[in-house]
Design a protein around this nucleic acid. Structure first.
Length: 895
RNA sequence: GGGCGGGUAGCUCAGUUGGUUAGAGCACAUCCCUUACAAGGAUGGGGUCGCAGGUUCGAGUCCUGUCCCGCCCACCA
């Protein structure tokens, strides 16, 4: 006797224990480990590097999504017997983490400058240690089967070494340079940020028209701008060289309003004659275009702002003012001075700092840049040639477009938390030293007065090396040799440029190999109405709470099944609830199957004859295995999950288990075979579902296995029971399809549904066993075989049931027909002939409609042009409809 | 301005070589605590697949045009 399992699946008690057990058993470790003595380098592994979450981040649905996806991929390959490695790790997340710590310190009234660099960094490391454990525990909770012994952190020793190696090599190759350029400056964070870290937002603004007075007093040049506060930084006014209105102005000088400085009027083709007044003020130090024009015309670059975007002494009387206050102040002053022409409302696209939100100020500063063009070329080629495949395909275009127009990458950040730039400057002779190791002495003048560049690198610089730095690069470690290049890069499409493209460029450049061969991009998780989740909107779904309430499997299944590659998915708690119910359905089906074993003999007595139902469910099972394999092969994981769900619930639980109850009661070989089939299907489904819902499947599988082993050898899978589901063999479809059984069961189910429908419609008491005659024609034998199941499922009176080839309708019965089978039922004592007539006519009308439709179809060119199989299918269908129609007509006539 | 994705049941979404009666979950209605499961079961209502053309024997699926929504890239001050 098997032990009694609780009525509902208790995920709370199972999840954490199960996870620990998997880990303790070593199941997350790659088989064929390069460290082992029996290592076979030709047995190729399947490897994923985790997209490292921010070390101080809090788990959100984006994490839940990628963990679910990647864990699915890993578990699937593991079950296929492929050595799998999922490398976990975390990212130091320069700006994000530094902001967080600064904010926390601010609550205590401490600024980072008060602490100084060293003390501040100590604080951040403390944070890192504390929050690292939290995020990692949360990732584990999702069931991530990573090899935690190989966990890495972007700032750990090995990775820091990789970063230095990469930096120095780029420098030596002439791909890295330092220069004073106009960059996106974040006044709040007081650092440069890359182009990707700038978000443009459309906002209403004003276009200001004003007079640039000619220095010789002969009039003015009308100019328009959206940023009057930059006037003090103007070094020229530009007009189009062919603009007839302004020909006479070119070469003259004008006076900067309020400031009084004289600046030239220049001609440049960049100026759009149609826009505004057709005259453009040039502020090289605070606008990227003006900067470029300034360079060609050798204009002065006048920085008028401080690092926190207040006006500096170059702005004269406005010094010390915030830039937006200055805008108002200077405009007011100009109004007073009679320099204002007009203002008009104007929709603008304003650059904001992605991280800190404030308006970006273009500023000139000394930064480090990577030349991207030569790195981009092979990265483009790798995708163009098909060496790397992006899923879904349409993102290749996005990828090309970005790489074809790539700009140099500003990689220095004026922060403290991150990889310090490996460059030293001699304060005595000015020598610049780029080095893999720390420099204490000037290589030129041997002075010890050397100082390291204060800046750190963009976080994404280290992320770009992730797939190989985590495996030991630049060392040629056994891990690197065996596991690199990795197989699959799975992440959200939102970081295609930030991360994916850079890894490809870096991978090819530094290792000579593409870092992975497939890229799967998942969509973003939104709320149930497709809105972006945000704290201000209050629509954030916390995965931790969802897991607490509904279980990890339910969340995972929802995310996996609810998403198609590259498309955003809307998540609602309702869906998770439905999938919690599915986990519970699995659990209870499992309970039934375990109990069913007690009702069957332990072994067969001679030849075992499967019933039509057995043959039907086994055929369907093979079909599902084939479908799932095909869908996994094309990365349609969601559809695969749905197929298993539908089969399990709709075919196995709703029908086969119900029929099995009857078959078990028959005892003997039928019962034996039924119990074995119940076990085999359940086992197969648990295997197929394991990558989606690892916890409930592993737990249940363990109980099923135990019960089956107790029962006897006959109940074991062909290859025997493995130690755990997580490492159990992935199902392979048998070449088995019993078309006859499939169609017989379809017919049986139709008949049962039709009887139930009539019962409900005619309000027959649910508990009443009714008399029936089934005129089944050719299918008579099947119906006889399935007689008990039919009575059980349609609630017929078995003793009075008649199954015949054909039969006349008795007076006291109502009749109907479906799938060519005539059905007579004694629902009530009285039969309302008129009502029956009406109903049968309605049914006949519908069937006749089908007959007409199909006859027309088969008389059309369809019959010759469509493939024979398709035509045959329709012919068979027509034949059945015709038979049904004939049955109904006969029934009507007898009324 | 360029590009991409989407528009299918009241809601959220599936529907991948075009195959002829378009599916699911939730919601809704009626009934049922039947010994795996009420987190369940049975039955039912609900869709001219955004619109207009085209290709085809056949179109939710392919092509063209068009409208609406969302996103990405670029950034004319």
């Amino acid at each position: 006797m098997s032990k009694e399992l609780p009525k509902t699946y208790d995920f709370k008690n199972i999840e954490s224990k199960m996870y620990q057990w998997w880990w303790d058993q070593g199941y997350f470790k790659p088989t064929n480990d390069p460290a082992s003595i029996n290592h076979d380098p030709d047995h190729k592994p399947y490897v994923i590097s985790i997209p490292p979450p921010n070390v101080t981040g809090e788990l959100h649905l984006g994490h839940a999504m990628f963990v679910s996806m990647e864990d699915l991929m890993i578990r699937y390959h593991r079950m296929k017997g492929i050595p799998t490695l999922w490398v976990p790790g975390t990212d130091h997340a320069g700006i994000a983490t530094q902001m967080l710590v600064e904010r926390a310190l601010a609550k205590e009234g401490i600024r980072r400058e008060d602490l100084g660099r060293e003390k501040f960094l100590e604080k951040v490391w403390e944070w890192k240690d504390k929050y690292h454990d939290r995020i990692v525990a949360q990732i584990r909770r999702l069931g991530a089967s990573c090899d935690w012994d190989r966990e890495r952190f972007t700032l750990d020793e090995g990775l820091s070494k990789a970063v230095r190696e990469a930096f120095v090599r780029l420098y030596e190759e002439g791909l890295m340079y330092r220069g004073s350029r106009i960059v996106n400056w974040s006044p709040k964070l007081q650092t440069a940020v890359s182009d990707l870290e700038v978000e443009y937002k459309s906002e209403p603004g004003t276009l200001y028209y004003f007079k640039y007075m000619l220095a010789d007093g002969s009039g003015y040049l009308p100019v328009s701008t959206t940023r009057p506060e930059t006037i003090p930084g103007d070094s020229a006014v530009a007009v189009h060289p062919e603009d007839p209105r302004y020909q006479s102005y070119i070469g003259k000088t004008v006076r900067v309003p309020i400031i009084g400085r004289e600046i030239p009027v220049i001609a440049d083709e960049y100026v759009d004659r149609e826009f505004g007044t057709g005259a453009l003020k040039i502020t090289p130090a605070h606008d990227p275009h003006d900067y470029a024009i300034g360079k060609t015309h050798h204009l002065q670059e006048i920085n008028i702002m401080t690092k926190d975007a207040h006006m500096n002494e170059q702005a004269g009387k406005y010094a010390g003012m915030d830039r937006f206050e200055c805008r108002k102040a200077i405009w007011a002053d100009m109004k007073e001075a009679g320099l204002v022409i007009k203002e008009e409302p104007y929709q603008m696209s304003i650059p904001h700092s992605q991280r800190s939100g404030e308006v970006i100020e273009p500023m000139i500063s000394m930064q480090w840049f990577v030349k991207m063009e030569s790195l981009a070329k092979p990265a483009l080629e790798a995708v163009r040639s098909g060496e790397i495949k992006i899923i879904p395909d349409h993102f290749t275009k996005v990828y090309y477009n970005w790489l074809e127009n790539i700009q140099d990458w500003c990689i220095s950040r004026q922060l403290w938390w991150g990889h310090r730039i490996p460059v030293w400057y001699c304060k005595d002779c000015g020598e610049m030293m780029v080095s893999r190791t720390d420099i204490h002495e000037c290589t030129k003048c041997h002075s010890h007065n050397v100082e390291q560049d204060p800046d750190v690198l963009d976080t994404w610089f280290s992320s770009g090396l992730w797939p190989f730095s985590t495996l030991g690069w630049p060392e040629k470690t056994p891990d690197y040799d065996y596991f690199y290049p990795t197989s699959m890069l799975e992440t959200g499409y939102d970081i295609l440029f930030f991360w994916v493209a850079r890894m490809i460029m870096d991978g090819i450049h530094f290792t000579g190999k593409v870092p992975f061969t497939e890229i799967y991009l998942h969509g973003l998780v939104r709320d149930e109405h497709g809105e972006k989740m945000s704290k201000t909107k209050g629509n954030v779904v916390d995965p931790l709470i969802v897991m607490d309430e509904l279980g990890t499997d339910a969340l995972r299944f929802t995310l996996l099944v609810g998403s198609t590659p590259g498309n955003d998915t809307n998540l609602s708690v309702k869906k998770v609830e439905a999938n919690r119910n599915f986990a519970n359905k699995l659990w209870n089906a499992g309970r039934f199957v375990i109990g069913a074993l007690d009702k069957a003999p332990a072994e067969a007595d001679g030849e075992v004859e499967p019933t039509a139902a057995d043959r039907w469910i086994w055929s369907r099972m093979q079909e599902v295995i084939r479908d799932v394999e095909r869908l996994f092969g094309s990365h349609q994981y969601g559809e695969a999950g749905r197929q298993i769900y539908d089969f399990f619930w709709g075919d196995y639980a709703d029908w086969y288990i119900e029929i099995a109850k009857i078959q078990l009661n028959k005892g003997g070989n039928t019962a034996f075979n039924t119990a074995r089939m119940l076990i085999r299907i359940l086992d197969t489904c648990l295997r197929l579902l394991h990558p989606f819902t690892p916890f409930v499947t592993e737990e249940l599988w363990g109980h099923v296995k135990e019960a089956a082993i107790d029962k006897g050898e006959a109940f074991a899978p062909a290859a025997g029971w493995e130690d755990a589901l997580i490492i159990a063999k992935w199902p392979e479809a048998e070449d088995y399809n019993d078309a006859e059984a499939v169609s017989a069961l379809n017919r049986l189910r139709e008949v049962i549904r039709t009887i139930r429908n009539l019962r409900t419609e005619r309000k027959v008491e649910p508990g009443k066993r009714i008399e029936a005659i089934i005129a089944a024609g050719d299918s008579k034998a099947v119906f006889e075989d399935m007689k008990h199941a039919l009575c059980y499922l349609a609630y017929l009176d078995e003793e009075k049931l008649v199954i015949a080839d054909s039969a006349e309708k008795p007076e006291d019965m109502v009749s109907t027909a479906v799938s060519g089978v005539s059905i007579y039922l004694k629902l009530h004592d009285e039969v309302d002939a008129e009502a029956e007539k009406a109903r049968l006519n309605a049914e006949l009308k519908e069937i006749q409609g089908q007959v007409d439709r199909l006859e027309k179809l088969l008389a059309s060119p369809f019959a010759e042009k469509a493939p024979a199989a398709v035509v045959d299918k329709e012919r068979a269908r027509l034949a059945q409809f015709k038979e049904t129609a004939a049955n109904l007509e006969g029934q009507l006539a007898s009324l």
